[in-house]
Design a protein around this nucleic acid. Structure first.
Lengths: 168, 168
DNA sequence: TTAAAGTTTCAAAAATTATTGAAAGTTTAT
DNA sequence: ATAAACTTTCAATAATTTTTGAAACTTTAA
C-alpha cells in the first residue's frame, strides 16, 4: 500500500473508532491527520485535506485543544496559526481517560452515591433488587475509577508492566 | 429520596451514560429498568414504563439479547414473553467488553496491522511520523486487547484484587 | 379453519447531531 | 485610522440516528 493511501485509511479508521465511542467523527479525523503529520498544519490545510468547512475546522480544533490533545503553534513572522498534535500515545490515552473520567464517570458516580443512600424495607423485593444493583455497580465503578486514577499518574511502561505481569 | 424517584433517576443516569458511550439511550434505559426489576417484565410493561413504542421496545430488546445482557423467559400457561436481565454486574461488564472488543477494537487492530506493514523511506519525515504513530498505537491497542482478554476469563475478585494490589 | 394473542418488520416521521458559510470580530502592519 | 489577514460565531441546513405505528407475520387454542 502507498503511504498516501495508508494515511487516508488511518484517518478513516480513527474517525470510525471515534464515532463508535461517542467522539465526533470529524474531531477524530482531524486528530488522526495531525497525529501523522510531522509538521504543524494550518486551518486551511486541514480544511483542504479533509474537505470540511472553515467553521467546522475551527470548532473541531478548539475542542481538540480543550481535550488537551493538540496545541496552537505560531511561526516567527507569520500571522497564521498552526496546530500540532502530541504524538506520545500514552499521553493521549491518559488525556482521554482524564477527560472522560471527569465528564462522564464522575457525574455518574455522584448519582450512584446518592442512590446508594435511599432507604427502604429489606423485605421488599423491589427495594432489595434496586439496592443490590446500585451497590454492585457502585463498587465496580469505584474500582474503574481507582484504576484510571493510577493510570493518570503512571508511566506507560510501569503501568502495562504491572498489569500484564499479573496476567501471565 | 423515594424508591420510585430513585428508580427513575437511575434509569435516566444509565441512559445518559450509555448515550455518551455510543450505546443508544433507549437501550441503556431498558437495560437499567430490567436491572432493577426483581421480576421479568413484558414488552407491554416496558413500553408503558418508559413511554416507548412497541416497535422500539421490540428492537431494543432484541439488541439487548444480542449483547447477551438479557434473556427471554416464558411463564407456564402464558403466551407472553418476559424479559429478565442478568444482575451480575461483573458478567455485564465482561459481556459489554467482549462485544465491543469484537465489534470495534478488533476491526481497528486489523487495519492497524495492515498499516504497520506499509514500507517507506526512513529519511522521509512523513513516513517516519506515520510509522511511529501507527506502531505506538498498535502496541497500546495490543496491551488493551490482552488486558480485556484476561478480564473476559477472570473472576471479578481475582481481577480487581490483582489490578488494585499493584497500585498500592 | 378461524380468530385471538402476541411478535416482528420497516418505511416514514421525528429528533438529534454535525456542518456550512457568510457575517462579525480580532489583530497586525502601515 | 484603515485595510488586509486571519479567526470566531451561529443561524440555517444537511446528515444521521432514533422512534413510531400500522401492516404483516406467527403461534396457539377452540
Amino acid at each position: 500500500m502507498e503511504l498516501a493511501a495508508a494515511k487516508l485509511k488511518f484517518i478513516e479508521a480513527w474517525g470510525k473508532l471515534g464515532s463508535e465511542w461517542g467522539i465526533n467523527r470529524t474531531m477524530a479525523q482531524v486528530h488522526a491527520l495531525l497525529l501523522i503529520s510531522p509538521e504543524a498544519l494550518t486551518t486551511e490545510e486541514i480544511m483542504e485535506t479533509l474537505s470540511i468547512s472553515r467553521g467546522n475546522a475551527n470548532m473541531t480544533l478548539r475542542d481538540l485543544i480543550g481535550w488537551g490533545l493538540i496545541e496552537k503553534q505560531h511561526k516567527a513572522g507569520e500571522r497564521k496559526e498552526y496546530f500540532f498534535a502530541d504524538k506520545d500515545v500514552w499521553n493521549i490515552a491518559r488525556q482521554v481517560a482524564k477527560e472522560r473520567k471527569k465528564r462522564e464517570l464522575e457525574p455518574v458516580l455522584k448519582v450512584l452515591n446518592e442512590l446508594s443512600s435511599v432507604q427502604g424495607d429489606d423485605k421488599d423485593p423491589e427495594y432489595k433488587t434496586f439496592k443490590k444493583s446500585i451497590t454492585d455497580i457502585n463498587k465496580l465503578a469505584g474500582n474503574v475509577d481507582k484504576t484510571l486514577e493510577t493510570m493518570l499518574k503512571a508511566e506507560e511502561s510501569w503501568f502495562w508492566g504491572s498489569v500484564l505481569k499479573v496476567f501471565k
